[in-house]
Computed example of a mutant assay.
Amino acid sequence: MLKAIFTSLTLLFALSSFSAHAQMADRLSEHPTFNSGAKHKKGGDDAVAMTREMTNRLHLNEGQFLNLLPLNRTKLVGLKSINREYRNDGATRAAKIAELEAQYEQECSRILTPSQLSQLQSEQPGSTPTGSGNGLG
């Protein structure tokens, strides 16, 4: 009985430690100046620039910025990976990019207000805002 309790406590402590480490890594990745590895990653710089530009266009608050930053990093890494992996297959590449964009838009809908999301959709090349019609009727 004592051995089972000790094992359970050890497992709980280990899981807590891993969770705390992962949270700290996420927090540090949001601040490239504190993460020496992130300084050298062009994708991280691109994601910060992209999120800052979105902040200016969509008038994001700080919480939205912090939630969109890792999402934008993931999107950019995904685009780079798709473009590299499917560079010789345009149809598959387009389908994979469309899938990535749909996932990105779904995640954005959890972070942005409906008006911010509508503005983002209307500014994306080749996309149409949700809803039909031209807004005149």
Rank of each mutant, 00 (worst) to 15 (best):
M1G: 14
K3V: 03
I5G: 02
F6A: 15
F6H: 11
T7K: 15
L9T: 05
L9A: 13
T10A: 13
L12Y: 03
L12P: 01
L12E: 00
F13I: 12
A14E: 00
A14W: 06
S16P: 05
S16E: 07
S17R: 03
F18I: 14
S19K: 05
A20D: 06
H21Y: 13
H21W: 14
A22S: 05
A22R: 08
M24L: 15
M24T: 05
A25I: 09
A25P: 01
D26C: 00
D26Q: 11
R27W: 08
L28T: 04
S29P: 02
S29V: 05
S29D: 06
E30N: 02
E30D: 13
H31F: 14
P32M: 09
P32A: 06
T33H: 02
T33G: 01
S36I: 05
S36T: 02
S36R: 01
A38S: 10
K39R: 13
H40R: 08
K42P: 03
G43P: 00
G44Q: 01
D45M: 10
D46S: 06
A47V: 03
A47L: 07
T51S: 05
M54D: 03
H59C: 08
H59Q: 15
L60G: 01
L60D: 02
N61K: 12
N61W: 04
E62A: 10
G63C: 04
G63A: 11
Q64C: 03
F65H: 05
L66E: 08
N67Y: 06
L69R: 03
L69H: 04
L69I: 04
P70C: 15
L71M: 10
N72W: 02
R73E: 07
R73F: 08
R73K: 10
K75M: 10
K75C: 03
V77K: 00
G78F: 04
L79G: 06
K80F: 09
S81C: 02
S81V: 02
I82T: 04
N83A: 15
R84F: 14
E85Y: 09
Y86E: 05
Y86Q: 02
R87K: 13
D89T: 03
A91W: 02
A91Q: 09
A91Y: 08
T92F: 03
T92V: 14
A95R: 11
A95Y: 04
A95L: 06
A95N: 10
K96F: 11
I97K: 00
E99D: 11
E101H: 07
A102E: 10
Q103M: 06
Q103A: 07
Y104F: 09
Y104A: 01
E105P: 02
Q106A: 11
E107M: 11
C108R: 00
C108L: 03
R110D: 01
L112P: 01
L112G: 00
T113D: 10
Q116Y: 14
L117A: 09
L117D: 01
S118M: 12
Q119S: 13
L120P: 04
Q121I: 15
Q121K: 15
S122V: 09
S122G: 13
Q124N: 12
P125G: 05
G126A: 12
P129Y: 07
P129K: 09
P129I: 12
T130Q: 12
G131R: 15
G133H: 11
G135Q: 14
L136R: 15
L136N: 15
G137R: 12
G137M: 15
